[in-house]
């Protein structure tokens, strides 16, 4: 079907919708779901299935496995830095919102942090849904301009001689940070290492230590 696409008309329509509909989002979303089911445009069981996927099947545990493998296996790390998508395919992870995956590596002199200033783009298949703070106006507006100040709000203080690189996921490219391996982790195997890697460390708002469990 041909969809009319005029920005000015959509702006007027959005104003009109907002001025006529009730304020409680929970009620509106419920009404929308039942309306779309009645119209043959939606199957509620499909929503339930997606919720199961994002609750149980994809999440930062996937990314943590990638990080732990990169720390333990030099050939895998080389492959990951050169073509992250193909390297991650070896681990059997899905591709939703991660078809164009790029991994950026933290070093003692370089710290990477990821944002989407225009909305909330994030590598779902590898890291799950973005945390609430990642979608917040505060993070989106400020981390490109004052990354050191924002990282301090996460309890992360960077030395002046560390270069900060902020990656804006405003296109279809999705970034994951490869954090530095903690210095006292030599004896740990891949599963033990993965358990240390937090979601925030893969966005670049935390470091990995051997004292705290990942989230």
């Amino acid at each position: 079907m041909k969809v009319p696409k005029e920005t000015k008309k959509i702006m007027e329509l959005e104003k009109e919708l907002h001025s006529h509909l009730p304020s409680d989002p929970a009620l509106r979303v419920k009404a929308l779901e039942s309306l779309l089911v009645e119209k043959g445009l939606l199957n509620s069981a499909t929503i339930d299935r997606w919720i199961e996927v994002f609750s149980d099947e994809v999440g930062p545990k996937n990314g943590a496995r990638v990080v732990a493998k990169a720390w333990s296996d030099e050939a895998f790390k080389k492959h990951l830095m050169a073509d992250a998508r193909k390297a991650v395919d070896e681990l059997g992870f899905p591709r939703l919102e991660a078809n164009n995956l790029v991994v950026v590596e933290n070093t003692p002199k370089r710290h990477n942090v990821v944002v989407c200033t225009l909305c909330s783009c994030y590598p779902w298949a590898i890291m799950g849904l973005p945390p609430t703070w990642y979608r917040s106006f505060e993070y989106r507006s400020r981390v490109v301009r004052d990354p050191r100040g924002v990282l301090r709000e996460f309890g992360l203080e960077l030395d002046d001689d560390v270069e900060v690189r902020v990656w804006d996921s405003n296109a279809d490219v999705r970034y994951m940070v490869l954090p530095e391996r903690p210095p006292d982790s030599e004896g740990l195997n891949e599963a033990e290492l993965a358990a240390l890697v937090s979601r925030d460390a893969m966005v670049g708002t935390a470091k990995v230590t051997t004292t705290e469990q990942g989230n």
């Binding site: 939606l42 199957n43 069981a45 499909t46 299935r49 996927v53 899905p94 591709r95 939703l96 991660a98």
Partner: peptide, 17 residues
């Protein structure tokens, strides 16, 4: 409408620009 069985294919492949 999209059936629940189609979810795993969408998850597996995603969209690509």
């Amino acid at each position: 409408p999209l059936p629940p069985e189609a979810v795993s294919v969408m998850l597996e492949q995603g969209l690509d620009s």
